[in-house]
Computed example of a mutant assay.
Amino acid sequence: MKRLSNLSILIILMSAGSAWAHPGHADGGFAAGLAHPLLGLDHWLAMLGLGLWSCAAAIPRKALATVCAALAVGAFAPLALPAVEPLLAASVLVAGLMGLGATRLPAVLGLVLAGVFSLVHGHAHGQETAGFAAAAGALCMSLGLMAIGWLAGRNTRLQKLAPALVTLAGAGMLGFA
């Protein structure tokens, strides 16, 4: 129960207004890129949700490869994506739903969704950080957050609870996007 309360406290703290603003990492360094996904609740929860889903769907390697490639393309390709903030919020909601319904969701559809949302997150990382080093740091941290989600998904107590919390947070974010 203590873990649950710590997780709840962390989610509440991450929902602070400054967590949405992604402040303080425009210098372009690798460390700034590492910090970027941690300072944005949308990035943090989407990657956590994708990790939970990949564990439940039993396809962590394919999911990791898909997410990594899509994040990189999004960060470095000259894309002009409309409505990025609502798409980021929607990605959190869908990632949570994917974790809740992983056994009913065809793996290929899940990989496509993971790829599309990772492309959007990569684009946001590329727009909000400066330079290759920062984008590489954001990519590394995003994959680390996904790995944490995968590890959490292996815990039987968290298998349904964690995706449900991610889904609720995504629904709340979508209401504010």
Rank of each mutant, 00 (worst) to 15 (best):
R3A: 13
S5H: 11
L7I: 14
L10G: 12
L10V: 10
L10F: 15
I12Q: 10
M14F: 12
S15P: 01
A16T: 04
S18K: 02
A21S: 13
H25N: 14
G29C: 03
A31G: 06
G33M: 09
A35M: 14
A35N: 10
A35P: 01
P37I: 03
L38F: 14
L39A: 11
L41Q: 11
L41I: 15
H43W: 07
W44K: 01
W44R: 01
L52C: 05
W53L: 07
W53H: 04
C55G: 10
A56C: 00
A56M: 02
A57Y: 08
A58Q: 13
I59A: 14
R61Q: 13
A65I: 12
T66C: 15
T66Q: 05
L71S: 06
A72M: 15
G74S: 10
G74R: 04
A75M: 11
P78G: 13
V84P: 03
V84T: 10
V84M: 05
L88C: 02
L88I: 06
L88F: 01
L93F: 14
G96C: 01
G96R: 05
G101A: 12
T103G: 13
R104M: 07
A107M: 03
V108K: 13
G110H: 11
L113P: 11
V116L: 15
V116Q: 10
V116I: 11
L119I: 02
H121R: 05
G122H: 09
E128S: 12
T129R: 00
T129H: 02
T129V: 04
F132P: 00
A133G: 05
A134K: 09
A134P: 00
A136L: 15
G137H: 03
A138S: 13
M141N: 05
L143F: 00
G144I: 04
A147P: 00
W150Q: 15
T156V: 12
Q159T: 14
K160Q: 12
L161T: 13
P163I: 02
T167C: 07
T167E: 00
A169H: 09
G170V: 11
L174N: 07
